[in-house]
């Protein structure tokens, strides 16, 4: 079980959280103008990186808030976590 760093509550066990998919995916400003390719990309295509992954979590059994985290998908080690709405941090590879 992972120890997940909630930026509001600190380190807590994984079962208090819900994973909520990749972070920093922006919804189109004018969805009616999107092509089918753009919709497919938005809805379905994923980077799925082997390595650093920016992702959303929700501390559902804690503060209840969404936040973002950077995690290494090979070691599962959390590199950073930050509040929703904050910019993606620069992380040296």
């Amino acid at each position: 079980m992972l120890i997940v760093p909630c930026p509001h509550c600190g380190d807590r066990p994984e079962i208090e959280f819900r994973y909520a998919g990749p972070a920093h995916i922006e919804r189109a400003q004018r969805p009616a103008e999107l092509s089918d390719e753009d919709w497919a990309s938005y809805l379905y295509l994923r980077d799925n990186p082997k390595g650093l992954h920016f992702e959303r979590w929700r501390h559902i059994h804690g503060c209840g808030r969404f936040f973002n985290a950077a995690r290494d998908t090979v070691s599962d080690r959390f590199v950073a976590s930050y509040k929703a709405g904050q910019k993606r941090p620069e992380i040296p590879r």
């Binding site: 379905y44 994923r46 082997k50 998908t73």
Partner: peptide, 18 residues
């Protein structure tokens, strides 16, 4: 499970999560 990694080498993004 490594499909996304290999396909990225050809510049193709996949609807896959591992």
């Amino acid at each position: 499970g490594h499909t996304s990694v290999v396909m990225a080498m050809a510049g193709v993004r996949m609807p896959i999560e591992s």
